[in-house]
Design a binder for these strands. Structure first.
Length: 175
DNA sequence: AAAGAGATGGTCT
DNA sequence: GACCATCTCTTTT
């Protein structure tokens, strides 16, 4: 599985009236033989869920401030994950705006730290099963297909394996 | 419009 | 004690 498969899927947080969601528009893949990956140096307490079962959520603290959300993709014991880099708000817009007070609508969830803040994904959510309808965070397929030709490019914000083009973005959405 | 720097804390050496 | 899979604000063209 590669990151491009997640494009177009719906990331949903919470249940009922308080639920918020967004459509995934940009991802990055990380594997265990990739020097830029958290899993590169083997399993540790922090990255343990990356080595767990696929379809689970891996959340880590970035730069001491932000949270970043990943979908574990490798088989059990393999240490692969896909970082969700950007999302288009889909439902619960009022709540998202409230959490991201002072920002333009276009800047609500267009970054890995921003989308976690806007949707309310926290470190405590790490390890949950994204496919379980009872989970507080889950990924759903509403029938929207992944783009035929995702934009592929280099990953962002890393210092190692910079040349590996494992960033995937949905083409600009037409209105 | 673009470029630079500070914030801030867990994790690993 | 250094290193970050980032964001925002401030300063400079």
């Amino acid at each position: 599985m590669v990151g491009a498969d997640l494009l177009g899927k719906v990331l949903m947080v919470g249940h009922g009236d308080g639920a918020v969601s967004g459509r995934i528009t940009e991802t990055e893949a990380y594997t265990s033989d990739d020097a830029a990956s958290h899993s590169f140096n083997g399993r540790t307490a922090r990255n343990a869920v990356m080595f767990g079962r696929p379809g689970h959520l891996y959340v880590y603290l970035s730069y001491g401030i932000h949270r970043c959300a990943n979908v574990v993709t490798g088989t059990d014991g393999d240490g692969q994950a896909v970082l969700i880099r950007s999302v288009d708000p889909l439902s619960g817009l009022d709540e998202i705006r409230r959490r991201r007070a002072g920002r333009n609508d276009g800047e609500l969830t267009n970054g890995p730290g921003k989308l976690c803040a806007g949707l309310g994904i926290d470190l405590a959510d790490s390890g949950i099963d994204l496919a379980d309808p009872a989970s507080s965070v889950r990924i759903m397929d509403d029938g929207t297909p992944a783009p035929d030709e995702p934009i592929v490019g280099p990953r962002i914000g890393i210092t190692k394996s910079v040349d590996t083009p494992w960033r995937f973005r949905a083409p600009p959405r037409q209105l």
